[in-house]
Amino acid sequence: MTSLLNVENLTLQFDTDEGRITAVDDVSFSLKQGEVMGLVGESGSGKSVTAKALMKLNPGNAHYSDSTKITLHLADWAVDIMSLKSSRDMQVVRGGAISMIFQEPMASFAPAISIGDQMVEQLLIHTDMTKKRAREVSIEMLDRVGISDASKRFKQFAFELSGGMRQRAMIAMALSTKPKLLIADEPTTALDVTIQAQVIDLMKDLVDDFGMGIIFITHDLGVIAQTADNVAVMYLGRIVEQGPVREVIRTPAHPYTQGLLAALPDLEDMDSPLVPIPGDIPSPLERPPGCVFHTRCSVAIAGKCNTEIPEFVQIDANHRAACHLATKGGRAS
């Protein structure tokens, strides 16, 4: 598979009233065509900000470091995202080569414009279709994502659809421009489990059909296990562990990943107690020195973990963890 996206040394800070805070710290990853990468972490871990950075969608008080390099490989062109300045230049990427679907479909559709008009509008901007053709394509897409009576739904407004239907329409809209990369930010979190299962199935089908790369952001490791090929676990703006989904979930090497898994209620073993990760995620204003996780880590070594930032340790061919205690082929414990 060919490379689609390379992110190198992404560091992103925000100016706030209380000072400059680091939201993403030295994050690197890459994505191939047709690959689904899961980005997992708790609230405040920087996963959404990282995804938005790929389209430079973060607000004006965001500062990217000079070392940040994001490259998107299109068929005939390697786009250097950081060098795009005007919003006109960005149009190639935003909604064109990269589409995004959000957690709250109700908040993502304009309430006073019909679903169909919104879909047509973006096709007119990003493609050279005629209005008539854009209409046909939109209705086809709505049909493709399993919305029955698509030509009727095309004329309806977001409030007329149920939650699951809205998320399907959102996916139809995001895919109608045939993006190379789809960013899905907690697309199933607001849905009931039965509907979530339907949407996950739909997304898997679409990857097979369209062959785009997907970055799937979620806090739910179960959803990741069911959808992703590879996974990156984020904590306080840093990737602490990444690798193939089987290895990360079955043999987690970073104490944070281990903690996340232990905190999950397991239906197979109802008697095992739930083990919370002690403490809370620190405020970004009080970023811990050394390993960002050391304040909550049960195996932290005083004098090392609280002073030295851990380098990535290669656990296996594609599996690595940023922990002083991680060893090749083994796990910290």
Binding site: G164, T194, Q198, I200, D201, G222, Q226
Partner: peptide, 23 residues
């Protein structure tokens, strides 16, 4: 159906869930 819709932590259990149609 509710029980089988819970996403399993086992990556090899993909697609085994009994899916509920509709809303």
């Amino acid at each position: 159906a509710l029980l089988s819709a819970i996403p399993s932590l086992d990556p090899d259990a993909r697609g085994t869930a009994q899916k509920l149609e509709g809303e």
